[in-house]
Amino acid sequence: MRVIIGVMGPGENATPEDLRNAYELGQLIARSNLTLLTGGRPVGVMDAASRGAKQAGGLIIGILPSGNKNSVSDAVDIAIVTDLGQARNNINVLSSDVVIACGMGLGTVSEVALALKSGKYVILLNNDPKSYEFFYRFSPDRVFRTNTPQETIQLTHDILARLSLFETK
Rank of each mutant, 00 (worst) to 15 (best):
I80V: 15
S96N: 13
V98E: 02
N33D: 13
G9R: 01
A79M: 08
P10M: 13
L124F: 09
V76D: 02
L114N: 07
A30N: 06
T82M: 03
L25K: 11
T168L: 12
L36H: 04
D97Q: 08
G6L: 01
P65T: 09
A48W: 02
R162C: 00
D74Q: 07
V76M: 05
V3N: 04
T15F: 12
V109T: 14
V98K: 02
V81M: 08
V112N: 07
T156H: 05
G40L: 07
K130Y: 13
K117D: 02
C102M: 08
E151Q: 15
R41V: 13
P42I: 14
P10Q: 09
S50L: 02
F135N: 00
K130S: 12
F144Y: 15
A22S: 13
Q86G: 14
M104W: 10
K54Q: 13
K120I: 02
V143E: 02
E111I: 09
L84V: 04
F144E: 05
V45P: 05
V72C: 10
A79Y: 08
L19Y: 01
R20D: 08
I100H: 05
F134E: 02
P65F: 02
L155H: 01
R137W: 06
I100L: 06
K130F: 13
P140M: 06
L64Q: 02
R20H: 09
R51H: 08
F138L: 12
G57S: 10
L163E: 15
R142S: 10
D158T: 13
V76I: 14
V143N: 02
M46H: 06
P129N: 11
R162T: 12
K120G: 01
V81Q: 00
R31M: 13
N21W: 14
G62V: 03
A14S: 15
A87P: 10
S32F: 09
Q86S: 14
Y132K: 12
I78G: 01
G105E: 08
D128C: 03
L28V: 14
I60L: 04
G40I: 02
A48F: 01
K54S: 10
A75G: 00
L155V: 13
F138M: 15
P42G: 07
Q27S: 11
L165Q: 03
H157Y: 03
T156V: 13
G105A: 10
G103R: 12
L84F: 11
G103D: 10
L64K: 07
V43Y: 03
F144H: 10
K69N: 14
G40K: 04
G119S: 11
T38I: 08
N89Y: 12
V93I: 07
E111H: 08
L37V: 12
I78V: 15
P140V: 10
I60D: 01
G119Q: 09
I80K: 04
G44F: 05
N90A: 12
S73L: 07
L155E: 04
V93L: 04
G103A: 11
N126Y: 02
I91N: 03
